[in-house]
Amino acid sequence: MLQTKDLTFSYDTQQQLQFEDIDCKQGEQWLLLGQSGSGKTTLLHLLGGLLSPRQGQVVVGDTDLTKLSEHAKDKFRGKNIGIIFQNAHFIRSLNVEENLMLAQRLAGLKIDKDHIHQLLNRLNVGHKIKSSTRSLSIGEQQRVAIARALVNKPKIILADEPTSALDDVNCDQVIELIEEVANEVGATLLVVTHDARLSSQFSNQIKL
């Protein structure tokens, strides 16, 4: 479902990052552990099509991201790849529901308010549906961000340090939640982190 081949990337000519090939099957959950500066985020951006590699391939399902045009890549990403960031960010002028609706709209999908509602309830933030995203606690923000990554039922969920801002209790809850909901939609999950607390949770691990 998510494969890379001979992936290299460079910000400039001197430094070149080379990544081991990855092969995650559908529905598998992977942990990518690495220290700061090891290129974790770069890899995640490459996998999400936010960056283009110098060489190599990123294949999602049957599609080679590196072969797509910029516009096609944007659309493909919106539909098939859900991304959860370290810090949850939202469109500030929109409330929780509208942020999720925008995610559906931008992916070119139909707006499905029932689905949004169910999803938020599933993540225990259903009561915040009409709230401004600024009024949410950090934990709530992260849950809404998870909801947004999942709202289009993506094939792949990429999570960039989803727990590093959370305490132990929240950390466990959030990572379990991500695993559960990824399971429910049958998505392949790849969590990128330096957070050693998570290593016990994943049987599939890659070290950078």
Partner: peptide, 18 residues
């Protein structure tokens, strides 16, 4: 202020022209 929002919209599928 909205730079991050704009990037976020791109990750959600918005194109440059959007």
């Amino acid at each position: 202020e909205r730079k991050y929002e704009l990037a976020l919209m791109r990750t959600m599928g918005a194109s440059r022209s959007f």
